[in-house]
Amino acid sequence: MNYRHAFHAGNHADVLKHVTLLALCDALAAKPAPLFALDTHAGRGLYALDGNSAQRSGEAEGGVSRLLAEAPKHPAIARYLAAVKACRLEHGPATYPGSPWLLAHALREDDRIAACELLPEEAAQLKVNFARDPRVAVHARDGYAAMKALLPPTLLKAGGSAMKFARGLVLIDPPYEAQLEEFDHIIGALRQTLSRWPNASYAVWYPIKRRRSLQPFFRRAATLPVKASFVAELMVHPDDSPLRMNGSGLLLLNPPWQFGQGLGAVLPLLAKALGEAGASSRLEWLKQES
């Protein structure tokens, strides 16, 4: 696998993913019971937007940098930008937080996070970045295998007693180097995990290149045994543009109550702020809770 997220950190896809991730954490943390979060493809957790990789791609300029310069007024966007600024106060003015950092920032002292990364160099840096946070366990392993091994989660407390987490969040954000094969892995892993941890919320990020290639994935996702599911998409280029990636989306399974309504109000604002002429957004339910 050759994918390095440092080239894409802070781009429009990260904005969509991370605005949604923080909103999910806040909604889940509104209830007092402790949470467990699994990040299956965590990367290194922190990225330097003044580094060679980010500077070569320039993708952050059309994402987080544009929002920092002029952001639409919405609580979810303000929450995201406040988290980015908090990260920069701690780690430097050109730093961008990856999903494991945002999870650690948003979740509470009694919550637990497992961050998985397969690439040795990225996993090593991830361990360094979270060495002082006892809530975060870093696993240098395949994220799909971790879903089978770590879920449902159990915390061993002092004295050897075990505490099960009834609620939590799984973020699946793979590199999609082989897109059709990746979708097979995702659906298979979700079917297995939902049978063991059915009450958790799941968020799956996906790129949008050719719209028709996504339809089989949506059809299979609609058959998963969940209470509710929807897709939320941000297109920064027209849907039929010949560019490599016109936008991205998130498949959300078992979202918190009324979460879709709140996210649906944010998506058009992001499309207007980050997109070119012809940009759009979409929120479509695959299964609504009865």
Results as ranks from 00 to 15, higher is better:
139 H>F: 07
123 A>E: 13
106 A>W: 09
186 I>T: 02
68 L>W: 14
274 L>E: 11
141 R>E: 14
267 L>H: 04
228 A>Q: 11
257 W>F: 15
169 L>R: 13
281 S>H: 12
81 L>K: 01
239 D>M: 14
260 G>D: 07
70 E>C: 14
42 A>Y: 03
262 G>A: 01
22 L>N: 02
182 E>N: 11
204 V>S: 07
125 Q>S: 10
25 C>R: 01
100 P>K: 10
170 V>C: 09
16 L>F: 02
76 A>N: 11
18 H>Y: 03
124 A>N: 09
16 L>E: 07
149 A>G: 07
133 D>G: 13
104 A>C: 09
145 A>W: 05
122 E>C: 12
15 V>I: 03
26 D>G: 00
189 A>L: 00
122 E>D: 15
131 A>E: 11
237 H>L: 15
58 G>Y: 01
228 A>L: 07
132 R>Q: 05
162 A>Q: 13
169 L>S: 06
10 G>P: 07
122 E>R: 14
262 G>F: 00
125 Q>V: 01
113 I>K: 08
219 R>N: 13
80 Y>S: 01
61 E>T: 03
221 A>L: 00
202 Y>I: 04
111 D>A: 04
34 P>T: 00
66 R>N: 06
219 R>E: 12
122 E>K: 10
249 G>S: 04
31 K>D: 13
266 V>N: 07
177 E>Y: 01
16 L>A: 03
138 V>G: 06
243 L>E: 15
129 N>R: 15
114 A>E: 11
33 A>E: 13
65 S>T: 12
236 V>M: 02
210 R>G: 02
104 A>L: 07
103 L>P: 02
38 L>W: 10
181 E>N: 15
6 A>Q: 08
17 K>S: 08
262 G>M: 11
242 P>F: 00
5 H>Y: 08
87 C>D: 12
2 N>L: 10
91 H>M: 09
234 L>N: 09
128 V>T: 15
214 L>P: 11
183 F>Q: 15
262 G>Y: 04
96 Y>E: 10
106 A>F: 15
270 L>N: 06
236 V>T: 05
202 Y>T: 01
69 A>I: 07
213 S>C: 02
175 P>G: 11
199 N>Q: 13
28 L>A: 08
72 P>D: 02
211 R>G: 01
122 E>N: 05
121 E>Y: 02
149 A>C: 05
275 G>F: 00
172 I>L: 15
61 E>W: 10
236 V>W: 05
207 P>H: 14
142 D>Q: 04
222 A>N: 00
53 S>F: 13
275 G>P: 05
21 L>W: 01
175 P>C: 02
94 A>W: 08
83 A>I: 14
270 L>Q: 04
21 L>S: 03
165 F>I: 08
252 L>P: 00
253 L>M: 13
88 R>H: 14
151 L>N: 12
26 D>R: 10
152 P>N: 09
268 P>R: 00
187 I>C: 13
127 K>C: 14
118 L>N: 00
121 E>H: 09
56 R>I: 00
282 R>S: 01
53 S>G: 08
60 A>S: 12
254 N>S: 02
181 E>M: 05
261 Q>A: 05
14 D>W: 05
61 E>I: 03
119 L>M: 11
158 A>I: 08
30 A>Q: 04
86 A>Y: 08
259 F>Y: 03
249 G>I: 04
237 H>F: 15
28 L>G: 06
15 V>N: 05
153 P>F: 05
82 A>D: 15
63 G>E: 12
157 K>G: 04
263 L>C: 04
44 R>Y: 05
